[in-house]
Design a protein around this nucleic acid. Structure first.
Lengths: 260, 260
DNA sequence: CGGGAGGTTCCCCCTACGGGAACAACGATT
DNA sequence: AATCGTTGTTCCCGTAGGGGGAACCTCCCG
């Protein structure tokens, strides 16, 4: 019943059971695609009648649709997502710059935001020679092993930074992954000095990334990055041409963005 | 308390109040962006304590985030949306063909799906000379006044077709909008015969569209369309070149799509 | 025709939810 | 600094709303 809330701070207090059940149903549906009452009831350990009234509620509210024999999530979710995206700063500019970055460099470009102590990809664009990665819009990655994550982390206010790092469970994804708070703090230091963050095969073997922070005054909104194979991402190119590219893109977004 | 469920069929039976409250909160958040407990409580007519426990539940489950003074929807919604999209047939192919259609014709292209008696835009691409429309991924449009809608409707099984048309409230958006079931049935007839559907300034003045159905065997998955200004969408061009384009795109999607 | 699986309905009992009110944490205004 | 107003949080109580069991319906398959 209890889930690991690996993220930032642990919340305590009363929560509402029916809402949690509904969310469990939604999450299950999200994983499985299209399923029926009985399967859901068995999986969640609830009676069919309970699940049934939930499904009815969610269908009435157009969160899900009955399709053939079973239910699936409704397309309204997509509408919601679009609105969420638009609420984040000036999304149009971000998208345009990510696209531009990908075309100019030929590599893969991302824009990410911190939430719950992880990086969420807000948008992504692939250049002409970009490698295929499993990244997908909306998925999250750890902060400590990605260029986006480390860059954002470096520019967060100290107390939030600590909070996140403390609740981090460092798992080595490759031999290069940073696995201790101390090493991470040091890396953040150099990230600040340098003005951009890098990921040297720390998350995926053979993949290097450069990221620059996008700030609004003193607060970080997120970061923008380019990723590519070590073969093309030489030390030379990474620290000159590519670093310049992400910094320029970040700058353009900053200039074009007026936050609330 | 009761909402107009304009869509397909009216559902009756027990629904769960707490879940509805939670959904109301989510919807409010979706409209307003970032708001606090008191504002939500006032707007929904609930006590602050009630709203508070709901917010706590939703925050725990990462549906929303506390940001500064207030809450906003979390980026996890975007992840959910991405998965929903991927569950729809072969989304990659659809996206590619919509893009291609837009580039080839220079106009604006859409792919839409029927749900709750309306058309939902699943994806969209803009060509080089495309006009700006207010359409957005995830938004819905009426069936009877759009080329996508009429095309899908024409190919739906008779009982579902009737069901939707009966629950339709025909509102004239322009002088050309079809406003009676009879006229609509007739139009659907010709749509079937012709093999593609058109919208001749029925939804937006000055805008014409052509759409072709995308089917999987006997069932319609959705439809793909091109839209543009009447000046460029002459009878001649619309019924030859453009109609061919959408039909070809629809065909490619059909061939590349293996449904469950 | 009969059996089985999944969906729907009914009803009961208990709990967990909604609401009111008190409490706490800021901030502004004078 | 002191006071008030505003917003977020906590506590507690009474009850109605929700979870569960079991019966019932529907469809499919042999």
């Amino acid at each position: 019943m209890s889930r690991t809330t690996g993220g930032g701070d642990e919340r305590t207090g009363r929560t509402i059971r029916s809402v949690e059940i509904a969310l469990n149903i939604i999450e299950l549906l999200q994983e499985r695609g299209r399923i029926g009452v009985t399967e859901i009831a068995n999986d969640l350990g609830h009676s069919k009648s309970t699940v049934h009234s939930h499904l009815r509620t969610l269908e009435k509210r157009r969160v899900l649709v009955r399709e053939g024999d079973g239910y699936r999530l409704s397309l309204r979710i997509i509408d919601m997502a679009t609105r969420v995206r638009e609420q984040v700063g000036n999304y149009d500019v971000i998208e345009r710059e990510v696209d531009k970055l990908a075309t100019e460099t030929g590599e893969i470009a991302h824009f990410g935001i911190e939430e719950y102590g992880e990086v969420y990809y807000l948008c992504k664009a692939r250049g002409s020679q970009s490698v295929e990665t499993k990244s997908r819009i909306g998925t999250q990655q750890p902060m400590y092993s990605t260029s986006l994550g480390k860059t954002i982390l470096a520019h967060l206010p100290p107390e939030r930074q600590e909070q996140i790092i403390e609740s981090c469970r460092f798992e080595p994804h490759t031999p290069h992954t940073i696995t201790s708070p101390d090493a991470l703090y040091e890396e953040l230091e150099t990230t600040i000095e340098r003005g951009y963050g890098i990921d040297d095969e720390e998350n995926i073997e053979g993949l290097r990334c450069v990221a620059a922070p996008v700030k609004n005054g003193e607060t970080v909104l997120g970061a923008i990055s380019i990723s590519g194979p070590t073969s093309r991402f030489t030390d030379e190119r990474l620290h000159t041409e590519l670093a310049e590219h992400v910094k320029r893109a970040a700058n353009v977004i900053e200039l074009n963005t007026k936050f609330s």
